[in-house]
Design a protein around this nucleic acid. Sequence first.
RNA 1: GGGCCUGUAGCUCAAUUGGUUAGAGCAGAGCGCUCAUAACGCUUUGGUUGCAGGUUCGAGUCCUGCCGGGCCUACCA
Length: 579
Amino acid sequence: MARILITSAIPYINGIKHLGNLVGSQLPADLYARYMRARGHEVLFLCATDEHGTPAELAAAKAGKPVADYCAEMWAVQDELGKGFRLSFDHFGRSSSPRNHRLTQHFAGRLADANLIREVSEKQVYSVADGRFLPDRYIEGTCPNCGYDKARGDQCENCTKQLDPTDLIEPRSAISGSTDLEVRETKHLYLRQSEMRDQLRDWIDSKTDWPVLTTSIARKWLDDGDGLQDRGITRDLDWGIPVRRGTEGWPGMEGKVFYVWFDAPIEYIACAAEWVDAGKGPAPDPGADKDSVWERWWRTDKGADDVRYVQFMGKDNVPFHTLSFPATILGSGEPWKLVDYIKSFNYLNYDGGQFSTSQGRGVFMDQALDILPSDYWRWWLLSHVPETSDSEFTWDGFQQDVNKDLADVLGNFVSRITKFCRSKFGEIVPEGGAYGPKETALIADLQTRLDRYQGHMDAIEIRKAAAELRAIWVAGNEYLQSAAPWTAFKEDPDRAAAITRFALNLIPFYAALSEPFIPDAAQQMADAMGTDLIWPETVERALSRLAPGHAFTVPDVLFAKIADEDREAWAARFAGTRG
RNA sequence: GGGCCUGUAGCUCAAUUGGUUAGAGCAGAGCGCUCAUAACGCUUUGGUUGCAGGUUCGAGUCCUGCCGGGCCUACCA
């Protein structure tokens, strides 16, 4: 039994995430976690909310709430939506947790001790009216290059020229519109990533099995221009983790907090500690303290040397996970677990454009659950997950694919065989008859397909795995058509009984294989057949689990079809402007 | 501007990393079945692999140029 640590990129706190966010990290991570648990491995699957930074403060202000209250509420909302999508986190933590405060401060102290932190005095724009320093993109003004009057301080969206905030003509705060801006001197801590460039490159170069998307982004940052740049890891904000050097104060850094991208990945570790604090982990070994329970996942000197750590994220997150966070871990000089495999994703677009939180364009997690059960979304999103390039959601495609795959191919298979059995033999697995060449051939075919399916799931080739799973469902319909128990029943009821018994056995087999994709329907299938979800050791053994005389019930329709009227109404409703 | 990714059937995607006649699913057409959610099965139409050159015995795959789409470009996260 292997031990597998899985983390999903942690979603930002400022609002409900859309399906593009979901499919880019949490959902594929959940698929992998469920699969690995089903295969009997020990899994720790962690996620959390990413709560610090300017956008959180502004969202809270807009909602008229203290930022701590706002984050607590939004955490609860995201936690609930995660449950709605059946995301099987062992713990859903918060980057604002006391555990993360302590760990983040600890890492900063270690990095400082290793001479990997330097202090930099720099000039930044301060908005007197807003009472805060403004990140470059929160400053608006007229572009000196093209005259566009809504250029941002980092870049003009109109002419794409990169800007410095001081380049802007008539700069103003994007928050309040105030022009009462001044340049102030402020001191910040920088992580000396450039010192670790060779070490990081050697590490990246050793990861020959990683997706191209992951390594090419990492190399770009290592080698672009003057190479990997040092990165500021502190900010002038109120909401965040106070800058401390371990447990000591940090002279000159009073009132400042760590940069959200410094503390967010550390939350992966802190979340494991939160998991233990929440009483969810196993009991510690006799004589060991409770921290040992999470440290055996994270400290290679305390049991984590045999852990395989897999991260899931969208491509925008890759630089921080391939460079900054590893620099933090390596630079600490302590034996923390480094990531073994990074699965990164492209973006999911919505009907010809991007999902847009600000414009309310696309489907958001709460809305999706309002209109359809989570299995519909899970299946479609995972079978279309943007692995090799950006992919696209359209209502037409969604309706067609879901109706065909889930209702017609899988749902109808379960329906046709259970109802046939009920009408001819009753709700009981029939006895009599013997299996013949057709059954032998199907077992062999399914064994080949199962091996391929497992191979794809092991390799986290999600779309290929989905296609193979679908082919496994299809094989059941092919078998029924070919064996035709309804015909056999007329001349040879014993043969019909054997066919029916064999086909009924496919249902728990399908349920187990399908569970990572569609957990609710899988459970319904298993419940209807009076079995548990057990991953097959071999197809032959799996298909002999339901013995003659075993009682079952005909389940309700597993997947109702999406009607044309629904599709049209939803397409109109989600075209833009949420609400 | 620079970098990376990408372009294959009407649609969504494959193609064992340079190797036979480029394959699936959906959609379309025809046939079959009647157990089933008008579901299922079988057969079948459909491609100058964005364009133009080049390397090679051989190119969807490698090189050059052009055209289109996307992402990143370090102070949003």
